[in-house]
Simulated assay, not measured.
Amino acid sequence: MTLVKFNPAKNSNSLIPGLNDVFDSVFNDTFFNDRLTTRVPAANISETEDHYHVELAAPGLKKEEFKLNLDRNVLNVAVERRIEHNDAAKNYSKREYSYNSWVRSFTLPESANAESIEASYTDGVLKIDIAKREEAKIVRRQIEIK
C-alpha cells in the first residue's frame, strides 16, 4: 500500500478536489520517471589551447560497453547494456532493471582534428580529448610598444 499526501490548501482547477494530487503522486514516482524520460549522462565540454575536452558522467559502466564513432564531423557516444540474470532459484516479485542504452552526439567544430581523438574511462567519467588543427591553435605573443 502506498500513502499519498493531499494538500487541501493547494488551489486546484479540477472538479474533484485532490484528483490532481493523486495523479501527481503516481506520475512523479521514480518508477514512472525512469521510464518516461530518457536518461543520458551529463556532459562537460571545455577547451584548452590545443585540445577540446568532453567529459561524460557515466558511472557503473565498463569501458567495453562504450562505442565511439565519428561520422563526418559528428562524434557519437553510445552505450548498450543488457543485464543478464541467470538466477533460476530466485522468484522475483518485482524486477525493474534489465536493459539500458543511450546515445549522445556532439558536432565537432571545423578547427577539430578528426584524426587525433583519444578516449579514456576512469572512475565513472568518460574523457574524450580532441586535438585542434595546427592553424586553429591559439597563438599568443607579447607585443612590444614603440
Rank of each mutant, 00 (worst) to 15 (best):
N113D: 15
N11R: 14
Q142L: 13
V26N: 03
K132E: 04
N86M: 04
I130T: 03
A9Y: 07
A131I: 02
K132N: 11
Y97I: 10
T30D: 13
A78Q: 15
Q142W: 06
F31C: 01
R104W: 02
S25T: 12
Y92A: 15
S111G: 12
A112Q: 09
A112C: 04
L70Q: 03
E55Q: 11
D50C: 03
V40Q: 12
A43G: 00
N33K: 15
T122E: 11
A58Q: 03
A114T: 13
S14H: 11
H53M: 06
F66L: 10
D129M: 10
L68C: 06
L126F: 05
E144W: 01
L126N: 05
P17F: 02
H85M: 03
V125D: 01
Y92V: 07
V79C: 04
T37E: 09
I83N: 01
E135L: 02
L36D: 08
N11S: 12
T2V: 10
V22F: 15
E64A: 08
A136E: 09
I145Q: 10
N11H: 13
F23D: 09
A43I: 11
S116C: 00
L3G: 06
D123M: 00
E135A: 11
N91Q: 14
A42E: 08
N33G: 01
N86D: 05
L56Q: 07
V40N: 12
I45G: 00
K90H: 13
S12K: 06
F31R: 15
Q142D: 09
E65K: 01
P8G: 06
K5C: 02
H51Y: 07
V22P: 04
S120L: 06
R95V: 05
P41M: 07
M1K: 06
V79Y: 01
N44F: 04
F23E: 09
N69P: 00
A119I: 02
D123A: 13
L68T: 08
S111Q: 12
P17Y: 11
E49A: 15
L56S: 04
N69W: 04
K62E: 07
G124K: 02
S14C: 03
T48L: 12
G124C: 07
I117P: 06
I45H: 09
V40A: 12
T38L: 13
K62M: 02
V40H: 08
R39L: 08
H51K: 14
I16N: 11
P109S: 11
S25I: 05
E64L: 01
G124E: 05
K5R: 08
Y52K: 08
N7Q: 04
R95M: 12
V139K: 15
L19C: 09
L126T: 07
V103Y: 04
L126G: 09
N20Q: 12
F6H: 13
F27N: 08
A114R: 12
A112P: 04
P17C: 02
G60W: 05
R39V: 09
I145W: 06
P8I: 06
K132F: 08
L75I: 10
N7D: 15
K67S: 13
V22I: 15
L75Y: 03
V40G: 08
K137L: 04
